[in-house]
């Protein structure tokens, strides 16, 4: 079986480091692709730009998506990947600092599977990432790969 890839879309280097640390602390050793803005994330998913030629049949098992992103923001990324049939069913967890109702509502409206607000306390953050990895990568049955 193919290895389950995690796509982390995060522009903040601190948050990226902390997220990776939290994953590691939770013994989640899956390959993590980091996209630092919306464009990069979409390039990876659709095999365009710098990821031109990538085998797009292989899609990440979990996408961790920040909302505030340079170039194309997280909600737009979500909208586009939901509009594409290859990624339409991929699990997307919005991982963000915002706790505004409007962000939460919009995320769910565009098809986010889960919405998690990053806690300031790193212990809690680690716990949250642990739960998240356990749930989406181990417990959850992803959509069947119909095109394989």
């Amino acid at each position: 079986m193919d290895e389950k890839i995690i796509l982390l879309v995060e522009d903040n280097a601190d948050d990226e480091a902390l997220t990776l640390r939290a994953l590691k602390k939770n013994k989640i050793l899956n390959e993590v692709i980091v996209a630092r803005d919306g464009v990069e994330a979409l390039d990876y998913l659709f095999g365009t730009g710098q990821y031109g030629g990538r085998d797009t049949t292989k899609q990440p098992e979990l996408i961790l998506l920040d909302l505030k992103l340079p170039k194309i923001d997280g909600l737009e990324v979500l909208k586009r990947l939901r509009a594409n049939e290859r990624t339409a069913l991929q699990p997307v967890v919005v991982l963000t600092t915002s706790s505004e109702d409007q962000d939460m509502l919009a995320s769910y409206e565009f098809g986010a599977n889960s919405y998690i607000r990053k806690p300031v306390d790193f212990n809690q953050f680690t716990k949250a990432i642990g739960h998240l990895g356990l749930y989406w990568l181990v417990l959850n049955q992803g959509p069947p790969r119909g095109d394989k």
């Binding site: 601190d14 902390l18 505030k68 600092t97 790193f122």
Partner: peptide
């Protein structure tokens, strides 16, 4: 809500 909390998380995370 967004921007003020991000640095705080970094401070806390790296202190830990």
């Amino acid at each position: 809500s967004h921007d003020l909390r991000a640095p705080l998380r970094a401070i806390d995370g790296f202190s830990l």
